[in-house]
């Protein structure tokens, strides 16, 4: 089976800083691939390049066998690349439901309809409610984002991404700022979802990573220093020294 996502020799410099230094890795279909590394390792920069918010200096990104490097952010989204943000980027004025409905609408490819009321459109509200149910937010559908708790916003981020029916989901630190109980719930949720879609997960919570991931890549100073199945990475001496050693 061909790989879902292939990064080949990706480079990004900010001035003298090598945020991404010759990164190559691939994500296989049906897997959850975790990307770990200490703060400042360049994980968010890498996610940004895959999603299309940051243009790499060199290298290529192949998604589902197609070179998507020249494509814009919305074009890649329509190809099936979904993402969540480290810092919540929901629409604060909208309710949870409307945030998801926007993604449903985008998925249907029809934003130039000027008259019909979205709230009366069951082809929007139906799928959106279904996504909210999947992340356990159905009873909070009508609450404005500004009134949701931090944990609920994380769940909503995920619901919005799911509404796009992505082929690959880029998750940028979905546990950031969550308490232990909320983290556990999020981990359970991701466990359920990983049966349906492939994911590339950036995360600091090592318990979550080791319980969820099939494969792990370790990024340090913009370079991939290790790459392999969870069990291998967990026991790798080089990884322990470069990264896990900090905590141990």
């Amino acid at each position: 089976m061909t790989d879902l996502l292939v990064l080949n020799g990706l480079q990004k410099h900010f001035g003298a800083l090598r945020a991404t230094d010759d990164v190559s890795l691939s994500v296989r279909p049906g897997t959850l691939h975790a990307l770990i590394g200490p703060n400042g390792a360049g994980k968010s920069t890498l996610i940004g390049q895959i999603a299309g918010t940051i243009t790499p200096d060199r290298g290529s990104i192949t998604f589902r066998g197609e070179d998507v490097t020249p494509l814009t952010l919305p074009q890649r989204a329509r190809k099936g690349l979904g993402r969540t943000f480290q810092i919540s980027s929901l629409i604060p004025e909208f309710s949870a439901l409307r945030n998801v409905m926007l993604a449903v609408q985008a998925r249907q490819g029809s934003s130039f309809r000027f008259w019909g009321r979205v709230m009366a459109d069951r082809s929007l509200t139906g799928p959106a409610m279904a996504c909210l149910e999947r992340v356990g937010l159905a009873d909070r559908a009508r609450v404005p984002v500004s009134d949701l708790s931090h944990g609920e916003r994380r769940q909503l981020e995920l619901a919005v991404a799911l509404a796009l029916e992505p082929v690959l989901l880029l998750l940028d630190e979905p546990m950031a700022g969550l308490g232990p109980e909320e983290s556990r719930k999020m981990t359970d949720l991701l466990h359920t979802l990983k049966r349906e879609t492939a994911m590339l997960l950036v995360e600091h919570d090592m318990d979550a990573v080791f319980s969820l991931a099939d494969e792990v890549s370790v990024l340090v100073y913009g370079r991939v220093i290790a790459n392999g199945p969870v069990a291998e990475i967990r026991t790798s001496a080089a990884v322990r020294e470069a990264y896990l050693g900090e905590d141990a």
């Binding site: 919305p74 943000f85 980027s89 629409i91 909208f94 409307r98 926007l102 609408q105 934003s111 009321r117």
Partner: peptide
């Protein structure tokens, strides 16, 4: 309308709009 939802999202967060593919 759908257009309005997209337009209001463009005001509040363009990146969000682009991320969902619009």
């Amino acid at each position: 309308s759908r257009f309005g939802a997209a337009l209001m999202t463009a005001r509040q967060n363009e990146t969000r709009l682009a991320t969902v593919g619009i």
